[in-house]
Design a protein around this nucleic acid. Structure first.
Length: 404
RNA sequence: GUGGGUGUAGCUCAGUCGGUUAGAGCAUCAGGUUGUGGUUCUGAGGGUCGUGGGUUCGAUCCCCAUCACCCACCCCA
């Protein structure tokens, strides 16, 4: 038997209903906030991700599905969605056009990781990117949108917030941090030693207990923000409070992608195991110029759909449409014709095998149909069809030509 | 990439201290006297016990490998 690749799943029937429900809910909300759908390729030039996500990140460093195609191009399956959207934004010269551009997207992402709960090699994200808005209000909008989506789906969460600073305060802070790390001498772990030169901020994120103990007194970025970053961060907190969105400041929240600056946030759930991040995002004002565009402020977020799946509270399913069945082999012809008529406006499912009335009622029940429509001996003789409303428990026999 | 766990019916799982025809519940299908469901009763079908080797007179059970899944580390959505 040929199986799907490791960490790559089929999504069928019941699961897909949830999936579809999620997409419908999230898309509706994104549109309501003024965002437009954008579809970008699953396959992109490898350089795109190296320059955006960053070579120091694990994603690019060891998790990409990278290969050379038949035209000798170094390509890879997208590990995340932002890079492609920014590439499209620049390629279509929207940066030069100016103004505000707001996009949402959803689709599969690929990361070569060891699968576990909430972590797949092919997984799906729903994301949003906003270009051209400098204001923190847009950062707040992002967070409000995620909160809105999660609320609509009946999902509880905790929101973690941090500011990563910008070009003014980050370099100075980085220096401060590096000298602090150096003061720890060789007590730090190997990973931290490496991060010290590649991406020092990430040491704060270290899961090693010994390191964490060393870093309690590390300088915190939050205390070293420049005036602009500080006032934006304060404003953001105020807006969230005004909108009744609870948050906790997490000074160790460092997004794993290199392109973030200023606002960084993460929504986590305590009910889905160790892969608890259900949404993450932030501001990335420098990314557009990294990808050869005109400097343009930008913010975005991405939601991990699979991680939300088991948390989604679905609305109760109503009985819907028709179930058609024949009690005699000869009755199948009028049954098919009747079903075709109904199908112009409603759902109609036909059982081809002649069965007892009881069996048909069971069948109708199983597919959660509202009506069970059957043609047997009596109906066949009179050109009628017997229809039972499974909710009202009423039944009627009507002439076939009066079927709407 | 590292560590631990699990693979028996469509699903959830028993089980055999190695020994004849491998079980249950749910699901499916059929019946409970003439054409009435979602709650009953009876019965039936369905398994090369993940795959490949090895030990043995004999393996679903023990050993090795392999694959898949699960959980955690790590990473992140």
């Amino acid at each position: 038997m040929i199986q799907s690749l490791r960490g790559m799943n089929d999504i069928l029937s019941e699961d897909f209903e949830r999936f579809e429900y999620f997409l419908a809910t999230a898309s509706t909300i994104a549109k309501r906030y003024g965002f437009h759908y954008i579809e970008t390729p699953l396959l992109e030039e490898t350089a795109l991700f190296k320059r955006s996500v960053g070579e120091s990140s694990d994603i690019v460093g060891k998790e990409m599905y990278q290969f050379t195609d038949k035209g000798e191009n170094d390509v890879c399956l997208r590990p995340e969605g932002t890079a492609g959207v920014v590439r499209a934004f620049v390629q279509h010269k929207l940066d030069k056009k100016g103004g505000i551009h707001r996009f949402y997207y959803h689709g599969p992402m690929f990361r070569y990781e060891r699968p576990q709960k909430g972590r797949l090699r092919e997984f799906h994200q729903f994301g949003v990117e906003s270009f051209g808005v400098d204001s923190v209000y847009e950062d707040a909008l992002m967070i409000m949108m995620v909160a809105d989506i999660l609320k609509s789906l009946g999902i509880g969460y905790r929101l973690k917030l941090n500011s990563l600073g910008d070009q003014n305060c980050m370099p100075a802070y980085r220096e401060k941090l590096v000298s602090f790390i150096e003061s720890c001498g060789d007590e730090i772990c190997g990973d931290c030693l490496r991060r010290k030169s590649t991406n020092p901020i990430r040491v704060l994120d270290c899961k090693n207990e010994h390191c964490q103990n060393l870093y309690v007194n590390a300088p915190k970025l939050i205390n070293n923000l420049c005036e602009g970053c500080q006032s934006d961060f304060d404003t953001l907190k105020t807006i969230l409070e005004q909108h009744n969105i609870g948050y906790e400041i997490d000074t160790n929240l460092v997004r794993g992608l290199d392109y973030y600056s200023k606002t960084a946030f993460e929504f986590v759930s305590d009910n889905i195991g160790s892969q608890s991040a259900i949404a993450g995002g932030g501001r990335y004002d420098r990314l557009i110029e990294f990808l050869d565009g005109k400097p343009t402020p930008a913010v975005g977020f991405a939601l991990g759909i699979e991680r939300l799946m088991e948390l989604i509270v679905m609305p109760e399913q109503q009985r819907e449409g028709y179930y058609f069945g024949a009690m005699d082999a000869e009755a199948i012809t009028p049954v098919l014709l009747a079903a075709e008529k109904i199908r112009r406006t409603q759902k109609a499912v036909v059982e081809y095998e002649p069965r007892s009335l009881k069996a048909h009622l069971k069948g109708a029940d199983r597919i959660n149909a509202r009506y069970c429509a059957v043609i047997g001996e009596n109906e066949l003789a009179n050109n009628t069809i017997w229809i039972k409303d499974l909710v009202e428990k009423t039944e009627s026999v009507i002439p076939l030509n009066e079927l709407f």
